Simulated scan of single mutants.
Amino acid sequence: MVDRRTVLAGALMLPVAARAERWDAIVDPRTGTLGKALEQAAQAGGRPFRILVRAGILVEKLTVTVPNVTIAGDGYGAILSYGTYAGMQHADGGIWGTGRTATLTIAAPGVTLRNLTIRNSFDFIGAKRDGAGNGAQAVALMIRAEADRTRVADCQIEGYQDTLYIQSRSWLSGCRILGGVDFIFGGGAAWIEGCEIVTRFVPGADTSGYIAAPSTPAAQPFGLVFHVCRLNREPGVPKRSTWLGRPWRAGGNMALTGQAVFVQCVMDAHIKREGWTWMGYKGPDGEQRRLTPQEARLFEIGSRGPGAGPTSPTRRMLSAGEVANFTRTNVLDDWDGLAG
């Protein structure tokens, strides 16, 4: 017998075959909101709570604050979009900083995202053209330090500057991540596998930016690890215009020596031969300094394609013995459900 329970998600009321589909809430962007479904999840007391999002655009800025929530879309056509950027004025009179700009923020453990598009819709190109904004940082997805064990599968994550901010253990697979400036960044330990990393075209830009900007604590053995990924570019992005990344010493914190590693990745011709570059920071004495690739932990091994480059002081290769340590189990510290 079909279970005819009715599931409420905002204004949406749909009959759900709960046993067959196992959704606790279904959101139709035409009539409901993901925010309402997350309010339901908050009432579930931390038990696993599954939300299905139908195709369409949800213009919402949200934070997941309860654990063990799964948000799954019908596909990339299930779009969560918002346009906040760093430097804009908040309704309370304050100024938005990078960490508050995210379209979707994960702030609880055990959250899973699948088959979604998560987009920061800020007009980066228009702001650059008009001299507006401050750069401008505009995060699509932020995974905060308290979010431990975030799983992101088969999602499209769209932005330009600071697209994906990772501050805790995260496992991403089969995703498409788009950006230009430091667009995969943060101090979390992340295993990023089988993803397409796309550098975006910005008219008139001197360079096409930096892929990774790790701020990994020196005491933390692993940072941003890209495994069997594809580094591609939008039409118009020139050859040899994009850095693999640069180490971010956030706030001048001397305990941060960013780690990022590309393992067996295919790189298009937009990647610079030098690979990595420095990033500036203000030291404890207030003087402006540079954190160089040689001081940080930036490596690769087994790169293929026209963007693969020779070993150099700024483009260092792991040995076979060193790369053996870079497994999903090691990077993610063998969290429960790792094989799922």
Rank of each mutant, 00 (worst) to 15 (best):
R151E: 15
Y160K: 08
L8E: 12
G302I: 14
R273N: 05
F226G: 00
N232S: 15
W276G: 02
T207G: 04
R30H: 01
G251D: 03
G209C: 11
I197R: 04
C229Q: 10
G179W: 01
I79M: 10
M254T: 13
D336M: 09
G99T: 14
T70M: 13
P235L: 11
S241D: 12
K272I: 02
A260L: 03
L104F: 08
D268N: 11
A147W: 05
A72F: 00
D28A: 04
D334E: 13
I106H: 04
L338N: 04
G223C: 03
R246K: 15
V331Q: 02
C175Q: 01
I301V: 15
E300K: 06
I211E: 00
P67F: 05
R144Y: 07
D206N: 08
N134P: 06
P67G: 03
A255Q: 08
F201K: 13
R315W: 14
Q161C: 09
Q43C: 03
P217V: 14
P313G: 05
G309T: 04
G159F: 08
A140L: 13
P247I: 11
A55Y: 00
M254I: 12
L34F: 01
D336P: 14
E234N: 11
P29A: 01
D336V: 12
L104A: 03
V198K: 10
P306A: 02
V139M: 07
E295F: 06
R5F: 10
F122P: 02
P238H: 10
F49N: 03
A136Q: 12
R22M: 10
S173F: 14
T98F: 09
G32Q: 10
M254K: 01
G286H: 07
D334W: 06
A18Q: 08
Q288Y: 14
E234L: 13
G280N: 13
E193T: 01
D333P: 01
A44C: 07
G73E: 15
G133S: 07
F201L: 11
M279S: 13
G204V: 06
